[in-house]
């Protein structure tokens, strides 16, 4: 039992590496914030654009969504980081991680918002247009408020799953929690940094999960 504590909860090791782990914590938060904001906004924009039904644009949007819903997040990230330089685009590991995850989240978010938009009864469009609102106004003031509410339960699980992909950024050496924890672990030959890292992830994503349970309960019954 004592050995267990020494291996996994070594106070001395933890004290030494805590600053590094906390800086990793900040990076993880930045990654998560960037990914969620960019991904959901992009997905929302794509879904609203899709509502205009321009043939060529639709084809592009659907292709985008299919590709990024199918490819594993890590593959997209790795491709962005190791592949883009060959196309003349040098990109930092942080940016590659954000790009990879945000594109994937955008694809899922677009699908969720689009499904919600198409679930809004035609009568809502007709009523809005019949009072002289333009297509864009009807979309923004009548359809989207209802659609967003429908989309939330569909989105929450997906958003959490993809945001947790920030840990994958350690694979391309972004200095987030797992990356810091792993190097601390190998230098100190002790597993405590990893346990602290796990605890830090729990601190971030535990609330995520609680909030999502609340959101699902609140908005799941709107329809």
């Amino acid at each position: 039992m004592g050995r267990l504590a020494e291996t996994f909860f070594n106070a001395e090791v933890i004290a030494t590496y805590l600053p590094a782990l906390l800086s990793g914590f900040r990076v993880t938060l930045e990654l998560a914030a960037a990914v969620v904001t960019l991904g959901i906004l992009l997905g929302l924009a794509l879904a609203m654009l899709r509502a205009f039904r321009f043939r060529l644009l639709n084809g592009l949007i659907v292709a985008f969504v299919d590709v990024f819903r199918t490819l594993p997040q890590l593959v997209v990230m790795v491709f962005a980081y190791f592949g883009l330089p060959y196309a003349g685009i040098t990109i930092s590991a942080f940016a590659a991680a954000v790009l990879g995850l945000a594109l994937v989240l955008a694809a899922f978010a677009e699908e969720a918002f689009w499904a919600a938009i198409t679930a809004i009864p035609r009568g809502q469009w007709e009523a809005a247009r019949s009072t002289g609102l333009s297509f864009g106004q009807a979309l923004a003031s009548v359809v989207m408020p209802q659609a967003v509410r429908i989309a939330i339960p569909l989105l929450t699980n997906r958003t959490i799953a993809i945001t947790k992909g920030t840990a994958l950024a350690s694979v391309i050496s972004v200095p987030e929690i797992l990356d810091k924890a792993q190097s601390a672990m190998s230098i100190s030959a002790n597993a405590s940094p990893l346990i602290v890292g796990a605890g830090l992830y729990l601190a971030i994503f535990g609330p995520f999960v609680v909030v999502s349970r609340w959101l699902e309960r609140r908005y799941g019954w709107i329809i």
Binding site: T7, I160, A167, A191, L194, Y201, L202, F205, V209
Partner: peptide
């Protein structure tokens, strides 16, 4: 269930692969 959902799976993997050998 919430604990399992709250961890990134990569963290679990690292725990299992690099952490368990310590015990």
């Amino acid at each position: 269930v919430d604990a399992l959902r709250a961890f990134p799976v990569l963290v679990l993997l690292v725990l299992v692969f690099y952490g368990l050998p310590f015990v």
